[in-house]
């Protein structure tokens, strides 16, 4: 589904450019949940930004469903790939109603039967039509994140990029959102690429996890190996030990 080969990216700076991704190789199968875990500055979000087209000028090869990303326009990309952001407030336009937010992707694509699609997407994320006339600031954090997820799935994409989707939420709301993501994954046959700093959250959702440190992938481990402590790299062990110490 997603194949990333020797991806490198230099962030252009004012004096000299800085390498923030170095020789990244990932291959994600259809329907898989793949996690990227690491600390701030490790480059995990940068990979998503390369995929989403926010970072231009990367080197290497990225292919989605066998098609090279460099040759796909943003407009074509939007049919296969959508993104959910960390901050549920910043991800929704503060002066658009929920109706307008969900209507926009349909209007851009010029699709018909808009109202049915909007209602279905809302229902998929556990909201009802009473939310339609509201503005984002009238919703709680968890409800905003649900709307953001509804916007991501409304175009029926195959891939969803999740950028720390629960780290701005309270733990009880985090549980609701994680459950929602699990059930959507099952119902819509989605492929997830999720970024988080929390190994517990990643391991809950993802079957395989790539551990990142200073722009490189140090290790790719399966969930089972994580649970059994079957990890090779010292840095993975630090993260794992920390996560276990908190349980």
């Amino acid at each position: 589904m997603i194949s990333i080969q020797s991806l490198s990216f230099d962030m252009p700076g004012s004096t000299k450019s800085k390498r923030i991704l170095n020789d990244i190789n990932i291959s994600i199968g259809k329907g898989e949940c793949f996690g990227l875990v690491g600390e701030s500055g490790s480059g995990k979000t940068s990979i998503l930004k390369c995929l989403a087209g926010q970072f231009q000028g990367w080197e290497g090869a990225i292919a989605i469903q066998g098609k090279s990303l460099a040759e796909t326009s943003l407009k074509e990309r939007s049919n296969t790939m959508q993104m959910v952001f960390q901050d549920p407030y910043g991800a929704l336009h503060p002066r658009h109603t929920i109706r307008k937010i969900l209507n926009e992707p349909l209007a851009i694509k010029g699709l018909s039967d808009k109202s049915e699609r909007i209602l279905k997407a809302l229902k998929d994320v556990g909201l009802d039509e009473t939310f339609l006339p509201r503005y984002p600031h009238q919703l709680s954090g968890g409800q905003r994140q649900r709307v953001a997820i509804a916007r991501a799935i409304i175009l029926d994409p195959d891939i969803i990029l999740l950028d720390e989707p629960t780290s701005a939420l309270d733990v009880s709301v985090q549980a609701e959102i994680l459950n929602l993501l699990t059930s959507l994954h099952r119902r819509h046959q989605l492929t997830y690429l999720m970024v988080s700093h929390d190994l517990g959250v990643i391991a809950h959702l993802c079957e395989r996890v790539a551990v990142m440190k200073s722009g490189e992938i140090v290790e790719v481990v399966s969930r089972d190996d994580l649970v059994e402590g079957n990890v090779a790299h010292a840095y993975t062990k630090v993260l794992l030990q920390h996560a276990l110490s908190r349980e």
């Binding site: 733990v171 009880s172 985090q174 549980a175 609701e176 994680l178 459950n179 699990t182 059930s183 190994l199 517990g200 959250v201 391991a203 809950h204 969930r223 994580l226 649970v227 794992l240 996560a243 276990l244 349980e247």
Partner: peptide
């Protein structure tokens, strides 16, 4: 109790997390 339980756990993974 709800706060304690709603956190995802590495050792005891549950398919759905308990919701408060």
């Amino acid at each position: 109790r709800g706060l304690m339980e709603s956190l995802p756990s590495l050792k005891h993974r549950r398919e759905t997390l308990p919701v408060m």
